[in-house]
Amino acid sequence: MVVSVSILFSAFFTHLSLGYRVMNPLSVLFSGITQLVEGGLGVEGYRVLRVLTAVVVGAALAFSGYLMQLSTKNPLADPYILGVSSGALFAVSLTLSLAGFVTHPLMIGVRFLTAFLGGLVAYLATLFVASRAGMTPTSLVLAGVAVGTFFYSASLLPQYFISRDIHKLIAWSMGSFVSPSASVLVLMVLMLSLTTCYVFFVRHPLNNLQVSDDFVRQLGRDPAKLRRYSTLLASLMTSLTVAWFGVIGFVGLAAPHISRRVLKSSDLVFVLPVSVVLGSLLLTVSDLLSKVLIVGVEIPVNVIASMIGAPVLALALVELRKYGS
């Protein structure tokens, strides 16, 4: 925990100092915060907002991934792999091509709501297909791939037919933190805190969801309800990130997987906090690389995050097979 937090801090400050110009991270932090509080966004304010966004989105995705893994008792679950992100992507893509990139404050709500509905529909579709296919780890992943591919392809259609704001639409759908927003950040932090409160309250039954529904019932909780609420919260968090920053895959899979591997435990009390920090770290580093790898060019953060995360999925698959699941 201490190690991962300290690496996150160093990544955080490196992120602040590097960019088009190299700056002193501490002064960027202080003047950035001043700018954010007083309004009027300068370079410093932008950098602070962007790195905070990476941290919070990473945390939210890792959190969502972990909750989905618990509720499906499947270490391969993740909002991207189960199709939730693509469902949200499709819904928002459709709305944006119809409405355009309107900057009305109401649009935050509209984008969020459509993303959530899209994500939820995709998640339910995945669960439906997987349960028909025996609900094994592999069938769940394959069902997610089927549903995810469908919605991802569908999300390209509106882009193809409607040329308005096409560049913005494409840049957004590829996943990037180029245009962070303070109000979205606040919304995300609220959502994260709400989920944290809920999870803290039900941490023991949630932990037992990994073992057997009977143990959950013995602790006085209905396992079906516990699953429903935690996946609902996970879908909400994921949809919120997709609505603004596009699809960022594999963080939800990689962070919990690495933290379980490092801690050699799957106790929620240890694994969840470390996963959340690792998720933040993964996206902070990915976003840092996305802006400094090629000077003056922003690579979509999803490209880098997926290049780190996808090998972890491959590893997890191999391990599952090795341990005969």
């Binding site: 270490p75 780890p137 990994q210 073992v211 435990s265 799957s266």
Partner: peptide, 9 residues
């Protein structure tokens, strides 16, 4: 059970 849970967990 979740495959990578330990006996202690």
């Amino acid at each position: 059970v979740m495959p990578d849970m330990s006996v202690g967990d």
